[in-house]
Design a protein around this nucleic acid. Structure first.
Length: 267
DNA sequence: AGAGGGATCTTCT
DNA sequence: GAAGATCCCTCTC
């Protein structure tokens, strides 16, 4: 489905009331420009009003890892940049990393280190680590000892110009401007686009002022979620093949599509 | 369209 | 000392 039409669908769903999400999400929408990027900085008072009742809290994050990984799909990650600009992205792809027994997890064997400490913290705590010396990945701690959910892809909703800047700055050739679908379709790309680095490690998603989540208005049903193997974990025995990656079927912003699994799904 | 390699550095063995 | 929950560019078919 064309993107424009999809956005229109979302918008009309919002405006035709529905009790969900609550009012301040609507406020955000109605006070933002369509572009969202060049909007004037809001006052402190307004910013305070903006982020309270609708944001996802600890009780949401406090669910088993696989359950949380699926529940994230369709929810919205919000990032407020130092200059006041807000970035919005709809979560479309996640991976569950269980503690202890999961051989592909940084917390395998139940071992806690300085790096992975955030995986053992309260649900909703961010675990950010550097990979290959140059990139970052962001996880959210879930219920369960050492368990966390990796955020793999977002559908950019607001602040796309800022995302493009952040993504392009760390690349070599100026090249062509990135397409919308290239902004956040990968765990390290979304970190770049949202300005998430090591400084966000161990922060609490339900109390931070620079990053938080709000409920999405278009949540998927069972049929819309593809469950398949995780990406880039190498050979981890039986854990290599477990269906612990989840993404929205048919969404253009997913990083890796598994057509075979999709064909095997019941229509 | 797909394969292959380089970048780059922290963490843990 | 080696590996790594990645990305991007280049080469080849």
């Amino acid at each position: 489905m064309p993107r424009k039409r999809k956005l229109l669908t979302q918008l009309s769903a919002l405006q035709s009331n529905s009790s969900f999400p609550p009012s301040d999400v609507l406020d955000n929408l109605s006070t933002s420009t369509p572009e969202g990027d060049s909007s004037p900085k809001s006052s402190k008072y307004f910013a305070t009003v903006k982020r309270n009742s609708s944001q996802l809290e600890t009780d949401f994050f406090n669910q088993p890892c696989v359950s949380l990984a699926k529940s994230f799909l369709g929810q919205i990650l919000v990032r407020k940049l130092p200059d006041g600009r807000e970035l919005w992205g709809r979560i479309v792809e996640t991976e569950a990393y269980l503690g202890g027994e999961d051989e592909a997890s940084h917390s395998k064997g139940g071992k806690q280190t300085q790096r992975n400490a955030a995986m053992f913290m309260k649900p909703g705590t961010l675990y950010v680590y550097q990979i290959y010396g140059i990139y970052f990945c962001v996880n959210v701690s879930s219920q369960g000892e050492g368990a966390a959910v990796l955020l793999r892809s977002l559908e950019p909703l607001r602040g796309l110009d800022a995302m493009r800047e952040l993504r392009s700055s760390s690349r070599k050739a100026p090249a062509k401007p990135l397409k919308d679908w290239q902004l956040c379709n990968g765990p390290s790309k979304l970190c770049q686009a949202f300005g998430i680095d090591k400084a966000f490690d161990q922060r609490d998603l339900s109390h931070d002022t620079a990053i938080w989540m709000v409920p999405g208005h278009e949540l998927p049903g069972e049929q819309d979620v593809v469950a398949t193997t995780r990406i880039g974990i190498g050979n981890r025995g039986e854990w290599t093949q477990k269906p612990l990656r989840f993404y929205l079927r048919g969404n253009r912003f997913v990083s890796v599509v598994d057509k075979k699994t999709e064909r095997e799904m019941a229509a």
